[in-house]
Amino acid sequence: MMADQIQFFFEVLIGGLLSGVMYSLVALGFVLIYKTSGVLNFAQGSMVLFAALTFVQLREKGLPFAVAFLITLILMAVLGITVERTVMRPLLNRSPIVLFLATLGLSYIIEAGAQLIWGTQVHALDLGISDTPIQVGPVSISQFDISAALISGTLVAALVFFFQRTRTGLTFRAVADDPFAALAVGLRLSRIWALVWITAGLIALVAGLLWGARLGVQFSLSLIVLKAFPVLVLGGFDSILGTIVGGLIIGATEKLAEVFVGPLFGGGIETWFAYVVALVFLLIRPTGLFGQKVVERV
């Protein structure tokens, strides 16, 4: 009986951690743009939707996986560059709230655009990963969850490598640290920002495929941004490492709370429990676990 309990606990925990990695993936798109240009890009969710919809439509037209992926990626790049050129750059140096509202508007425009081009139907997306559980020791885990976590984890690792080890990554970090100093050493901010939006597009594409395969490609997909916010509050808005840890914590506590605390409330607490955690965090540690502390000299 006791052993069963423990085994069940671990199954829930692992399932939670794995879905947490997918939260991290969405949050990562935010962090990337927030770090380098100080914009909280609300449109990240609609970019996820746009990517998933485009991909699924191309697949339904009979294109092979790789071709569909490539075309979608190119479209995401074009979208990213367009947004940077036509919306973000003219609004440069405006207050954060103006930029945030601009991205909010943008998210509806992208959604409507996707709807206009691809229609409003719900599409099933099959990535060819089976969803049958496999046994790892005494614990059974969803194969899809493992694959999704692996893919997300690889992307995150690649991004960390890129940020820490390449020259372009260094310029990203520099722009994030101080745009004025970046200008002073002759970094081309517009080129860097375009690259950032392209990278955010790539992340949106991967997130769109994984979440689309899990939930079906439909318009509620853009709402996964809302799942990213608690992760960001926990991990800090400007920390890649933070999004990973934040995602894991949110994923795990959400599932554990649903299973073990949920019955006390009559179930269904999974949808809002993450926000309770985030709220508590905001009260006790506003910069998140890994966010940069703001020290002001007075």
């Binding site: 260094l170 520099a174 640290d177 101080d178 100093a181």
Partner: peptide, 14 residues
């Protein structure tokens, strides 16, 4: 006009 958050080496290399 330095990058306060980056290391000395990164500041120079950039």
């Amino acid at each position: 006009a330095l990058f306060d958050g980056l290391s000395v080496l990164d500041n120079i290399a950039i």
